[in-house]
Design a protein around this nucleic acid. Structure first.
Lengths: 256, 256
DNA sequence: TAGTGGTCTAGACCACCCG
DNA sequence: GGGTGGTCTAGACCACTAA
């Protein structure tokens, strides 16, 4: 009737809530500080807990908050820049590598990876597990798939299916260095953490992750494929010339 | 030892549900097919609608499903590869550019961008809006910030604050080409769509997006900053410097 | 053991799309 | 108008952490 609908698009409560909280985080909280618990916050804003949680979830997705079961909700530090690609092509396991080998198995890869490698569906490949830590926090878990054909010089393990240790992982990486790397290829997409990755990343299963898929080319073929999952809440992936520092150094030595 | 704790971690219902649905999508549905509605699905699985929705949300986040209000839930096609970075550094607006200029304003940028540009908090910069369409779908929205100092030759518009059209956007881009690009710098992180971007991307506000921030260096300074938000559900960002041509599993999904 | 976030329920109403 | 997904409520219980 006479009710003039000023807000043609009524803003959802959780959206407005997110805005209010976001501003409060900027002005009234400092990094690491713990927020009131969800039940109190919901009461304070006069909404149901589920509605409040919808706002908190978004803020966590944006890296503004960190929530841990049994502990509480804290203000997250700014995302850390994680260098994920340099201009030069280098094999995994090179000297300055940020990854730490954790294990190695020999098994058929997922179908998607087999497609990239050009191997048969059930063909066994070396599968190296690595993890990456930055600023004292686990930031990424990786699976590196290397077809046996890429490493003819690597001796086969006595029991191919036995889960092997970091020693064998290092052997595979060492063997890779002997190949001439001709190029590489990267893709980034959003995913959710599988159970194994979640444990390694100290997150719950299903947590949002940035999946970086890299193909390594050598001898005219795809010689290896890396699938690395980065914590999307804490990481900003940096590519390119300067490694994400604020002030660029003004030299021209890396300009092509 | 003797206590065989088979299920040490009881799987949440929504997680199990997601697995079941995911397998069903692979085996029993084809791309574009519409699923039963949420109320029916929930009843069929014997869970509350909210629980079912939690599973659907994850599947949508992973790009397996597409949900549209008033329409229904459909099986999404595989994510399209969107080329986002080449080895060569090129200014926005170069010949083969995938972006379409939409408008241009002159206003102070967000604080984060001002920090990257090294401009004062309230300094006005040229702000070019562009959008990117791929395979008939909007995939990204961009804001390109160019300090006035970077383009001394560009005449100022008569009314600096007036929202200008695509013509002025093109003028700014054309002016950029005259600068010598010395390098660039990219970062990718997860974000959620702001209201303006959401409208342009045909998504709801808050939808997950991949935010690509690019700094362009010229004359020893940061000459421009681009903030591009890509739909995370439909896009796989590719950073190609592959030495060869791609072979994928049947479908040609690369887009330059 | 007390307190936190995580999961789940069974409803309700709303905004949107289409025939 | 009828059906869809999106929002919201007011509860309940569970899993985890720390004192």
């Amino acid at each position: 009737m006479g009710t003039t609908q000023l807000e043609t698009v009524p803003e959802p409560k959780y959206w407005h809530l997110k805005t209010v909280l976001s501003e409060a985080l900027d002005s009234e909280f400092s990094v690491g500080e713990i927020l009131p618990n969800e039940r109190d916050l919901a009461a304070r804003f006069g909404v149901a807990r589920a509605t409040l949680r919808q706002a908190l979830e978004q803020l966590e997705l944006e890296g503004r908050l960190q929530r841990r079961r049994g502990v509480g909700t804290t203000v997250a530090p700014p995302r850390m820049g994680v260098a994920v690609g340099s201009e030069e092509h280098v094999w995994p396991g090179a000297a300055d590598d940020a990854w730490q080998p954790a294990g190695c198995a020999t098994a058929p890869p997922p179908n998607a990876v087999a497609g990239l490698l050009g191997t048969a569906r059930d063909e066994q490949v070396h599968t190296v597990r690595r993890s990456r830590v930055s600023q004292g926090q686990p930031v990424a878990a990786e699976l590196l798939y290397v077809p046996r054909a890429s490493l003819p010089a690597l001796p086969e393990p006595p029991f191919p299916d036995a889960p092997s240790g970091a020693a064998r992982a290092r052997a595979v990486l060492r063997e890779l260095q002997h190949l001439g790397l001709e190029g590489q290829d990267r893709a980034v997409e959003l995913g959710s953490a599988r159970v194994e990755d979640a444990r390694e990343l100290d997150r719950l299963p299903g947590a949002p992750v940035l999946v970086v898929t890299t193909r390594f080319f050598a001898e005219g073929r795809t010689a290896a494929v890396s699938v690395a999952t980065y914590r999307a809440d804490t990481c900003r992936l940096t590519f390119g010339d300067s490694g994400g520092v604020e002030i660029h150094h003004g030299t021209e030595d890396e300009v092509s």
